[in-house]
Design a protein around this nucleic acid. Structure first.
Ligand SMILES: [Zn+2]
Ligand SMILES: [Zn+2]
Ligand SMILES: [Zn+2]
Ligand SMILES: [Zn+2]
Lengths: 158, 158
DNA sequence: CTATAAATGTTATGTTATAACATATCAATA
DNA sequence: TATTGATATGTTATAACATAACATTTATAG
């Protein structure tokens, strides 16, 4: 999925992410337990970032988990293996939209529709920046807040 | 100051930042009140990020402030006007090392010495990334965790 | 089977941040 | 210089985010 801000077949979006993650877990010997799978499904419900306690509430509604550590463990599992991303600016989490690739995403947070998109072209860019000062990058966070094309188009149609 | 990871005349570092901020406040009609000034001085004590409650403790030691909102207000003032930066990855704050320039910094967090450096060459880079998807950037966060040249040099001298 | 590791369940608490409202101080101007 | 409106500070309370520590259960390998 390229542009989550634009209208798209989100059922397909969800389904392909889920099957990709299931395959990746099988290949890598990771256990996509019920809590973990449901947590991913919850994040996949939309392209909005959810806080850990939002996720926990939904897990609790499903009778799967009802204590903060349970949600954090599932979210951390997904993040560690690249199936979800933490949005630092929002203290929140999104499902990854290309969970097959080993990647460092740049995140685009629309302040209008509140969707969060990601692009993967950002990593080498950071590496270049860092080399200037001899800094060796372990992890790189790139997040932008602003407005997506769709929201700007809509607001100009007033 | 370019490379805060390397040994440098930090007294000068502190002094020049403080006088630059004082001048900027005078020019822009901003009030660098005692709490705000002391908060800046606290951040300037080193190139380490401090949490709001660390700052609050120091303000409290000085009898200047003793409730969370006081520290957050002072920190927010400094951040809003570009005199300090919030480090999203650390939920913490650093004094800006070039408070004269209107800038979007990239932050370099050394996991070894825990110093945080900033560079200003990053903004246009983000703009370029964003334009690809038609995203209009309001604020941009670029933060890297890793190891600085000095720390890597030292650890290879074992 | 059983030993081991991994995951989950649970309690408690730590950490970060803000809403809401009261009071004081500053700065412009009548 | 008194009024006043804006800005900053003081205060209470609570919201929101996150993890330490330990017990129990479940999965997997030998
Ligand atoms: Zn979708
Ligand atoms: Zn949008
Ligand atoms: Zn310095
Ligand atoms: Zn270092």
């Amino acid at each position: 999925m390229q542009n989550v801000f634009a209208p798209h077949d989100h059922a397909n979006c969800t389904h392909s992410a889920l099957t990709t993650v299931e395959r990746a877990c099988a290949e890598r010997g990771l256990r996509l337990t019920p809590i973990r799978k449901r947590t991913l499904e919850i994040l996949l419900e939309g392209h909005h970032a959810l806080g850990a306690y939002d996720v926990l509430q939904k897990l609790s509604d499903d009778g799967l988990a009802d204590k903060p550590p349970m949600a954090y463990r599932a979210l951390n599992f997904l993040v560690e293996h690249g199936f979800a991303h933490r949005v630092e600016r929002l203290n929140a989490y999104i499902a990854c939209t290309h969970p097959d690739a080993d990647h460092t995403p740049a995140l685009w947070i629309c302040l209008d529709c509140h969707k969060v998109a990601e692009t993967v072209q950002a990593a080498e860019l950071g590496q270049r920046l860092g080399q200037e000062g001899g800094f060796s990058i372990n992890t790189l966070t790139i997040e932008a807040e602003g407005s997506c094309q769709q929201c700007r188009d809509e607001s100009s149609n007033d």
